[in-house]
């Protein structure tokens, strides 16, 4: 019997030569630093250039520096911080209520056929009625105060959470449920260890929709008899024809929405690190 031993080529030079065959990448590739900010910064630059060169007339859209001046004026003279805080408070309370109810309803209707027949239908019906069209009704029911605003925002943000969590839950591989059955765990443990983590990607997508929906709801509800809030500020500015103040409000909404969305995506990347996806 002959044996041939192949000795591996010994690398004599200490250099780190690295010759490899690399396939063309079809996915999005490695993450870029500050990628979140590149798009918005570019948009801001375009806006500034457009205003400076006169392409964007002040009557159409105030220049960024005018907006900064208006911002300062609002901050100093009109309690802009108070407006921001009161808007934030409204959307946060509404959003939290909406997210919790949406998720709880999704788990109930996702895990039990009885729950599904009770919950799913009404939510689909509710979904086809625009929440904003319900406001007059809510005003009649809950008055024009704080309650009506919170309930509207909660309802608006509940729907995407429900839809996406439910969808994510039902998309969980049935084999994991089978495994859980053979291991002999309780329903509560099943929900905690299989259902919730499995539905988490869906929930987080719903969350991205929900944060922006809650801001959308904010814009509308604050037009009704608010004494504070960004929507209130915009409504006043509208009456006095102060375009720059309106743009201040819009920019604040934009920044809110963008930051909230980025935060959700960041959290999603952290908590979904068990996945090997193109997100990377």
């Amino acid at each position: 019997m002959t044996t041939t031993l192949h000795t591996p080529p010994v690398s004599t030079s200490g250099d780190k030569a690295d010759a490899r065959v690399v396939r063309r990448r079809l996915g999005p590739g490695r993450r870029i630093r500050f990628a979140f900010w590149i798009g918005p910064a570019l948009a801001l630059a375009l806006w500034a250039v457009g205003s400076a060169s006169g392409v964007i007339k002040p009557a159409i859209l105030s220049a960024p520096w005018d907006v900064v001046i208006a911002f300062e004026d609002q901050w100093v003279n009109h309690d802009l911080l108070g407006n921001i805080l009161s808007s934030l408070e409204r959307s946060l309370i509404g959003l939290s209520i909406g997210v919790v109810t949406g998720a709880v309803l999704a788990v109930f209707s996702g895990l039990s056929r009885a729950g599904e027949s009770l919950i799913d239908g009404p939510i689909q019906i509710k979904r086809s009625v625009p929440t904003l069209a319900l406001i007059p009704l809510f005003i009649a029911w809950f008055g024009i105060g704080h309650e009506m605003k919170i309930i509207t925002i909660a309802l608006i943000s509940m729907v995407p959470i429900y839809i996406h969590t439910h969808n994510g839950l039902r998309g969980i591989d049935g084999r994991y449920a089978e495994l859980a059955e053979t291991i002999g765990i309780s329903r509560g443990e099943f929900v905690r260890h299989v259902v919730l983590p499995g539905a988490l990607p869906g929930f987080l997508l719903g969350m991205r929709f929900a944060v922006t929906s809650s801001l959308l709801g904010l814009v509308v509800v604050e037009q009704y008899n608010a004494v504070a809030g960004i929507g209130h500020m915009i409504t006043l500015a509208e009456q006095y024809g102060q375009t720059d103040v309106i743009v201040v409000g819009l920019v604040i909404y934009g920044v809110f929405g963008y930051c909230a969305d980025s935060a959700v995506r960041l959290i999603a990347r952290r908590v979904l690190s068990w996945r090997q996806t193109l997100e990377g």
Partner: peptide
């Protein structure tokens, strides 16, 4: 023991 390992990917 199943044919696939059936490890929960999130654990």
């Amino acid at each position: 023991v199943f044919q696939d390992s059936r490890l929960l990917p999130w654990k």
